[in-house]
Amino acid sequence: MTEDFDSTNIEDFEAKDTARKLPIGWLILFWGLILWGIYYFVMYSPSISGWTQEKAYHESVKK
């Protein structure tokens, strides 16, 4: 039984498996991380938000 899977039947097996839908939880993770990435990039890019690590440092010292 264990030996049944081999590259011989890869094509059948691909046809079968491609029909499977992607898990919804995983899709949420996938798109969620892209959205978060856009947010983070906007927040921490000097040319967009003006944030720089040096400015952040000088502000933390002023306190």
Partner: peptide
């Protein structure tokens, strides 16, 4: 800073493909 930020963004994104294999 922008290179660091870009790296952080893509690093977080890597959770998705990695967990694709896990799932």
């Amino acid at each position: 800073d922008w290179i660091q930020t870009l790296a952080i963004v893509f690093t977080l994104f890597l959770i998705a493909p990695s967990w694709g294999s896990v799932i």
